[in-house]
Amino acid sequence: MAKKRRKLTQCPNCGYTFDDTNNYCPNCGQENHDLNVPVKHLIAEFLEGTLHFDTKVWKTLKYLILKPGLLSEKFNIGQRASYVPPFRLYVFVSLIFFFVLALTTKSTVQLQSTKGDKPVAALPGMTINANLADSLALAADSAKLEKLEEVAAAAEEMKALKTNIIQDERATLVAEKFSKFISNSEGSKQKLLKNISFMMFLLMPFFAWLLNLFYRKQGRNYVEHLMFSIHLHTFYFILLIISMLAGHYLPVPDLSGVVIGIMILYLFLALHRVYKQSYVRTLLRLIPIGFTYLITLAFFLVSTVFMSVLLS
């Protein structure tokens, strides 16, 4: 779709007089396009420039939602011009997802206050200077040897006590950071959303690597697996957007089971279409791929929350 330009007769940047064919100023390079228009025109142009917001985007979304794996298949065989580029579509949908997530979620964790002072270390750190090897060599009688053994035992006890104190101090520090993270619910939520978006960005190439591992005998390029991963996660974002909006604004029961079922079914159908294997072989691939993906996703989520708390 060609961009609809509102051309000027003279360049406002350098004063060059335009010809009718000038889309850019030959003198300074500025675009010959008047932006002094109502906001709705600017929004329309943003969507057009970002997604080519015409029949292309509707066709892309229709295939993405209703025909699992078809967009990845068309990308792999070179049919790309008729559809929104995968990464551009992912960025746009992910922005909507995190906006809806911030809009529909509220902090439900409350810190239970307890009476009493904060736990403090019972003893300061200490070191023991005792050269037991030299002492044992000099201990000639049993009385001295027994005394040194008592000192050594006491030293071990003090060392264990010191280790426990350090661990308690670290636990106290983590608890304080968690308390601070929970108390600042709005700021913590924004930080967590930012970190989760970065985590998902890292998860896509990992999932592509996972596909490359399980389908290495097909000799496909890594980019093909990456496009599959991008399309898959874009669909997952769309599905989560719909479920979050439905759960927030409509009196519907918990949709978690339905969403997980649709995710698994979509992945199964997409793998079958793109990698051209029978339903049985696709299922045998789906089980380890899905299990590994879920384990990795859980690890990434826990790590993201933990890092968000520590850096708060």
Rank of each mutant, 00 (worst) to 15 (best):
M1T: 15
K4H: 12
T9F: 11
Q10P: 02
F18G: 07
D19R: 13
N27A: 12
Q30F: 06
Q30S: 13
V39I: 05
H41R: 05
F46E: 01
L47W: 01
E48H: 14
T50K: 15
H52A: 11
D54L: 00
K56L: 09
K56E: 08
K59S: 04
T60D: 09
T60F: 13
Y63H: 15
K74H: 05
I77H: 08
Q79H: 14
Y83D: 10
V93A: 02
S94W: 07
I96E: 08
F97E: 08
L103C: 12
S113M: 09
P119C: 00
A121D: 00
A121S: 06
P124I: 14
M126R: 13
T127W: 09
N129M: 06
L132N: 15
D134K: 14
S135N: 03
L138P: 06
L138N: 08
A139K: 02
A140V: 14
A140H: 15
S142D: 05
A143H: 09
K144I: 11
K147M: 15
L148E: 03
E150Q: 12
V151H: 07
V151F: 05
A152N: 01
A154S: 11
E156Y: 06
E156M: 11
N164I: 08
I166Y: 04
D168M: 10
R170A: 13
A175S: 09
A175C: 05
F178M: 15
S179E: 07
F181Y: 01
I182E: 04
S188P: 04
S188L: 04
K189V: 02
K194A: 00
N195L: 04
N195I: 02
F198A: 12
L203P: 13
F206L: 07
W209K: 07
L211Y: 05
F214E: 13
Y215P: 03
G219L: 06
R220M: 08
Y222W: 06
V223E: 09
L226S: 00
M227W: 07
F228Q: 07
L232M: 01
H233Q: 09
F235L: 01
I238M: 09
L240Y: 14
S243K: 02
M244Y: 04
L245D: 05
Y249T: 11
L250S: 12
P251I: 14
V259M: 03
M263I: 13
Y266C: 09
F268W: 13
A270H: 00
R273H: 08
V274W: 04
V274E: 09
R285W: 08
G290P: 02
F291A: 07
T292D: 05
A298N: 02
A298S: 00
F299A: 15
T304G: 00
V305M: 03
V305S: 04
S308N: 10
